[in-house]
Computed example of a mutant assay.
Amino acid sequence: MASPQWADATTEALFVRACADCHSNRTVWPWYSNVAPVSWLVQRHVDEGRSKFNIHVPGFGRDADEAAQQVRSGKMPESTYPPLHPTARLNSAERAQLAQGLAATFGDDE
Rank of each mutant, 00 (worst) to 15 (best):
28 V>H: 09
48 E>R: 13
28 V>N: 01
49 G>T: 03
31 W>K: 06
48 E>M: 15
39 S>G: 09
41 L>F: 15
54 N>S: 09
52 K>W: 07
50 R>K: 04
57 V>K: 03
25 N>F: 11
31 W>D: 15
27 T>L: 01
52 K>C: 04
46 V>C: 03
40 W>P: 04
43 Q>F: 06
47 D>E: 13
32 Y>D: 15
45 H>A: 14
38 V>T: 07
54 N>V: 02
40 W>M: 12
27 T>K: 10
29 W>K: 10
56 H>W: 11
56 H>L: 12
36 A>Q: 06
50 R>L: 01
39 S>Q: 11
55 I>E: 00
36 A>F: 11
24 S>A: 06
27 T>E: 01
27 T>P: 04
42 V>G: 00
58 P>E: 01
48 E>P: 09
50 R>G: 03
32 Y>H: 14
50 R>W: 05
45 H>I: 06
40 W>E: 15
35 V>T: 08
37 P>N: 03
49 G>E: 02
53 F>C: 10
35 V>G: 04
46 V>L: 06
25 N>V: 08
42 V>D: 04
54 N>I: 08
57 V>D: 11
38 V>N: 02
41 L>N: 14
26 R>L: 09
42 V>M: 02
32 Y>S: 12
26 R>I: 13
37 P>G: 11
49 G>S: 10
36 A>G: 09
38 V>M: 03
56 H>C: 08
28 V>L: 05
44 R>T: 13
35 V>A: 05
56 H>G: 11
58 P>Y: 00
55 I>L: 04
46 V>P: 07
55 I>Q: 04
36 A>V: 14
